[in-house]
Design a protein around this nucleic acid. Structure first.
Lengths: 251, 251
DNA sequence: CGACACCTTGACCAACGTCAAATCCGGTGG
DNA sequence: CCACCGGATTTGACGTTGGTCAAGGTGTCG
């Protein structure tokens, strides 16, 4: 298992039949970097775009690969993964529809990207996209804003990983998923969890067992309700928010 | 205690006597975002620049402040801090000479910035700096690169905080300081630690006691040598690198 | 209906945190 | 130059959270 872009590891190329109008009709454009572009610019972007599909457990990108592609998620969920050499795993973040991925500080991707659910993405040639950004200041500004937002998320996650208890981590996670749903016009509760307990554990710096036990405990305490394993109603949002803020390590 | 920019919380304004040539003679320019600029552009930047000094334990910026300033460190060390509401503290990173600070995703700084040692910084009005970046593609590109590098650092730190043992965290930290020194033309060993044990603990997601005990243990094992509390020789770099990579949780 | 993957639960354990005391070290004043 | 002071650091004894190991459940898809 291994290897990278443009090979069988990656999902099949889709036919470009819809390409000319694909962007204009794209359901996630408002949430994506390409929202920044006018019609003429969008046409230029479309010309350098291809579409790919990727199903679990496929890798889109592997840690260490040369950074040749840049991607925008149109549907599905993916995870960003880093491994230690003995196999310990940390999930750095998730990609949802509208998310962008592609910048790499030193010419190589420093994370692997894997499908959590079947997903579709627009792919761009990174250098060409960077060149386009150099010509369109609004686009470069948008990328800068995306980077700043990701940095903010990463910093919040550092607090979670460095200082929060298991209960607080789960509360923060559930609220984060809830807020995300709300931002996309969905109800804030119940929350739908497309990723496995194992993914949640590796995202929160815990084990599967601790995630499971802690969720059970939150359920017993009436803070959440299980509609199913993957659908959770936030029964006591105030309690979750107190936990999220770290109001008291004892709860 | 509190509050923010432009007030007494911040160090005194320095006189601009050297200003016209200050940038050209600046010892950290090669490491800073302004390295990107030609003479004419540099003059424009200088015109919007002021210089400040800040001594511990002063705050340069407080979490939640509106983001009006952007800063470049010319000397000294600062720390980026986030707090939970019950007082638990996570240090998100350190700023060294040449480091840039200022982007905020939603108009407000999401971290506090505090002096670790007496420090000097160039200060810019954030909006004007952003406007300048909009006019100078190379500058905007540099900012994007800075953001990408910070993101990479943050992601590496997420692995550390989520998955590494105390021993591995200290090894990673010491190597990181060593590599940083080396990049700036200093010897990779001994490492000089300008920050307190408490800062190290809050950066690594540990307690002071665990930091102290773990360093003592690394010393007993011959991996490091204490020249003083704040100067540490890396006696067995290979051992540190094995720990850093997470080759085996048992060591 | 059965197999398999995923999830939950239980018993036990160890790494790291907490609480407390001793020691070190730099700065100050005699 | 030396004694003293106070904060930082180290060390020690002990407790707790979350990890490990090991069974059971549960649900989903042939």
């Amino acid at each position: 298992m291994s290897v990278s872009e443009g090979h069988s590891q990656v999902g099949a190329e889709m036919d470009g039949a819809l390409a000319p109008k694909a962007c204009r009709m794209c359901p996630v454009r408002a949430d994506s970097f390409c929202a920044e572009l006018g019609p003429a610019e969008l046409a230029r972007l479309e010309a350098m775009r291809s579409e790919i599909a990727i199903d679990p457990p496929r890798l889109l990108v592997q840690e260490g690969d040369p950074a040749v592609g840049a991607y925008n998620v149109t549907s599905g969920v993916l995870r960003l993964v880093k491994l230690l050499s003995d196999g310990r795993r940390q999930i750095i973040g998730f990609l949802f529809p509208g998310s962008f991925f592609g910048f790499a500080a030193k010419g190589r991707h420093q994370v692997s990207v894997e499908a959590v659910t079947p997903a579709r993405l627009c792919r761009y040639h990174l250098e060409r996209l960077v060149a386009l950004a150099g010509e369109i200041p609004a686009l470069e500004g948008r990328f800068l804003r995306i980077a700043a937002e990701e940095l903010e998320d990463a910093r919040a996650q550092m607090v979670l990983l460095g200082r929060k208890t298991a209960r607080e981590r789960l509360a923060s996670f559930l609220l984060w998923m809830s807020r995300r749903a709300e931002r996309h016009g969905l109800p804030p509760s119940p929350v739908e969890l497309p990723m496995s307990r194992s993914d949640i554990a590796d995202y929160l710096g815990l084990t599967i067992e601790t995630v499971s036990r802690t969720l059970t405990q939150l359920g017993r305490d009436g803070v959440i309700d299980f509609l199913s394993t993957t659908r959770i109603a936030l029964a006591d949002r105030a309690a979750l928010e107190a936990l999220d803020a770290g109001e008291d390590a004892r709860h």
